[in-house]
Amino acid sequence: MSGFIIGITGGVAAGKSAVTSRFQALDVTVADADLAARDAVAPGSDGLAEVVAAFGTGVLAADGRLDRAAMRARVFADSAARARLEAIVHPRVRRQLMAECEAAPGPYAIAAIPLLAEGGGREAYPWLDRILVVDVLPETQRRRLTARDGIDVALAERMIAAQADRRERLAIADDVIVNDGPVEALDAHVAALDRRYRALAATHHA
Rank of each mutant, 00 (worst) to 15 (best):
residue 2 S to I: 03
residue 2 S to F: 04
residue 4 F to N: 04
residue 7 G to H: 11
residue 9 T to F: 09
residue 15 G to W: 08
residue 26 L to F: 08
residue 32 D to C: 02
residue 34 D to M: 04
residue 35 L to F: 04
residue 39 D to G: 01
residue 45 S to H: 10
residue 49 A to W: 03
residue 52 V to M: 09
residue 53 A to F: 13
residue 55 F to P: 13
residue 56 G to S: 01
residue 57 T to L: 03
residue 59 V to K: 09
residue 61 A to N: 05
residue 62 A to R: 14
residue 63 D to C: 01
residue 64 G to D: 13
residue 70 A to E: 09
residue 72 R to Q: 13
residue 74 R to T: 07
residue 78 D to M: 14
residue 93 V to M: 07
residue 94 R to L: 07
residue 95 R to I: 10
residue 95 R to K: 15
residue 102 E to R: 15
residue 104 A to W: 13
residue 105 P to Y: 08
residue 107 P to H: 03
residue 111 A to Y: 00
residue 111 A to D: 10
residue 114 P to M: 12
residue 115 L to S: 04
residue 115 L to V: 09
residue 116 L to M: 12
residue 116 L to I: 07
residue 120 G to P: 03
residue 122 R to K: 06
residue 130 R to V: 08
residue 132 L to A: 11
residue 138 P to I: 08
residue 144 R to P: 00
residue 146 T to K: 10
residue 147 A to F: 02
residue 152 D to Y: 13
residue 153 V to D: 03
residue 167 R to D: 12
residue 167 R to G: 11
residue 173 A to W: 15
residue 174 D to H: 14
residue 174 D to A: 07
residue 177 I to S: 07
residue 180 D to F: 12
residue 181 G to I: 07
residue 183 V to H: 08
residue 190 V to D: 06
residue 192 A to H: 12
residue 194 D to S: 01
residue 195 R to V: 03
residue 197 Y to L: 03
residue 199 A to Q: 04
residue 206 A to L: 01
